[in-house]
């Protein structure tokens, strides 16, 4: 009897491992910086990845008729500690958009233009790199660090 259960347990275990591996090949996405993506462009072509960068305000072009949204993101470090060391996310984003030597990535996205898409916002895009070096985004997430960092209140009563 014990043998049966042992075999059953092993079968179940291998089934779960198999499920996890097949699912991972489709469900896991690399989270890269612009620099990393450009360096591994060949290997990653056609594969779904997530990229984070600073939005370059003047590059935003939006056509409300076709919902085509184009903009450029600039490389920022991916590591949280590194960002903190450079003075926090807001400072990092500001430095990125003002540095013409940093790697840049053109992005195209079809959909309504989010309110938060502005100069110096952090964009996180999910999609694939096409053969022309344009990032085809399916998902667009934006973060504006300045808003929540105002931890210290600004207004005081006159007491």
């Amino acid at each position: 009897m014990n043998k049966k259960f042992l075999i059953g347990g092993l079968l179940m275990l291998s089934a779960v491992v198999y499920l996890v591996f097949t699912a991972m090949s489709q469900g896991s996405q690399y989270f890269l910086t612009v620099e990393e993506l450009l360096a591994r462009r060949e290997a990653l072509q056609g594969r779904k990845v997530r990229v984070s960068g600073a939005v370059l305000g003047p590059s935003i072009v939006y056509n409300p008729e076709t919902l085509e949204l184009r903009f450029i993101i600039v490389h920022i470090p991916g590591d949280n500690d590194e960002i903190e060391a450079q003075g926090g996310l807001a400072a990092v984003l500001k430095a990125a958009v003002n540095d013409p030597d940093r790697p840049r990535l053109p992005v195209v996205y079809y959909g309504p233009k989010p309110d938060l898409l502005r100069h110096e916002a952090q964009a996180i895009v999910l999609g694939t790199m096409d053969e022309n070096g344009v990032f085809q985004a399916e998902e667009l997430l934006l973060k504006c660090p300045t808003r929540y960092e105002a931890a210290v209140p600004t207004q005081a009563a006159d007491e």
């Binding site: 489709q26 896991s28 690399y30």
Partner: peptide
């Protein structure tokens, strides 16, 4: 997995809904 991957391989990975749907669906 994303935490481990970042810690040991230095690569940031996220697990999207397709992973969970495919792996848990049969279960």
């Amino acid at each position: 997995y994303p935490l481990l991957s970042e810690l040991f391989v230095g690569e940031k990975v996220t697990m999207g809904p397709p992973y969970y749907e495919r792996a848990t669906g049969p279960l």
